[in-house]
């Protein structure tokens, strides 16, 4: 049973990294970023390409993917999203468009290798990120089999969640983000540069997505479509947890990841997804604003 909980925890971790970015951008800026999954995918490809071309392993891929996805997020914010503030449905459609474009661009470049067609410099076949050997050997500790890579995912997520908490609650920048989340006009009237802070927030959330992509690449096939399902799960977490609530996001990711992991092992993946959706529907009926939401007070 402890094995199952462990797998659930690592699923929760990835979910949390994806949802943290979504929660911050949706909470602070009212932007539904449908391209968030593609930023995860870009992070995964960054890891794959860095491994092939630069010979960089997982540990270097993590910061590299954070920067790559973060910069791409900043670009999306600068070019597109900043023109659409306050138009929530438009942001959804526009970022969905960005998602499709990113997906197709990557497919044009790398997608053919799925069919065994050689792509210069990339090799053929399915793409995976090489995980360092010491992270792949299970360790037995007192009868409990510790999966090192799964543990690594959990540790990275804990660190990044801690960092996010510190940034949000212990720095002036975080105070500005939280002020904007609650009342952007008053925040601006208090001297906060809402556009600049929003852009940086968006870039940070995108960077977290990139890190999630690298971690995913360690145990999942890297492909152009990989972001689509991730973003749906991310939004489930955000909705269940309550928009803009760090604690809610952490809890919701934990619950949904565990349910997914446990049910998947007891039956199968399809049933697990159905159960997750059922739980989400139930939770939303029970608490429409999510488990924690400052706006409901």
């Amino acid at each position: 049973m402890s094995d199952i909980i462990f797998i659930g925890l690592s699923l929760s971790s990835i979910l949390l990294l994806v949802a943290l970015g979504l929660s911050i951008t949706y909470g602070a800026m009212g932007v539904i970023n449908m391209a968030h999954g593609e930023l995860v995918m870009i992070g995964a490809y960054t890891a794959v390409l860095a491994g092939i071309h630069l010979g960089l392993n997982l540990f270097f891929a993590l910061p590299l993917a954070f920067v790559t996805s973060g910069l791409l997020g900043l670009l999306i914010e600068r070019v597109l999203i900043r023109r659409l503030y306050g138009r929530i449905i438009d942001t959804l459609l526009a970022t969905w468009g960005v998602a499709i474009v990113l997906q197709q661009l990557v497919r044009l470049e790398f997608g053919l290798s799925f069919f065994g067609i050689h792509v210069e410099g990339l090799g053929s076949g399915l793409q995976n990120m090489a995980v360092p050997a010491f992270l792949t050997q299970p360790v037995d500790i007192a009868g409990f089999t510790l999966q090192p890579y799964r543990s690594f995912i959990i540790v990275v997520t804990l660190l990044l969640t801690g960092l996010t908490w510190w940034l949000m609650y212990r720095t002036p920048m975080g105070a500005q983000v939280r002020a904007i989340m609650r009342n952007p006009q008053i925040a601006a009237a208090c001297g906060i540069d809402v556009r600049r802070v929003s852009a940086l927030t968006f870039a940070y959330g995108s960077g977290l997505a990139g890190v999630a992509g690298v971690l995913l690449a360690g145990f999942k096939t890297v492909m152009p479509e990989m972001g689509a399902s991730v973003v749906v799960d991310g939004f489930l977490v955000v909705v269940v947890g309550g928009v803009g609530s760090l604690l809610g996001t952490v809890l919701a990711a934990g619950i949904l990841g565990q349910i997914n992991g446990v049910v998947a092992l007891l039956s199968n993946d399809i049933i697990a997804r159905a159960v997750v959706f059922a739980v989400v529907i139930g939770l939303i009926l029970w608490r429409p604003r999510g488990l924690f939401s400052f706006k409901s007070r």
Binding site: A188, A189, G191, V194, R195
Partner: peptide
């Protein structure tokens, strides 16, 4: 000027 600059 944008709002935050007026505040500043």
């Amino acid at each position: 000027q944008p709002t935050y600059r007026r505040a500043k």
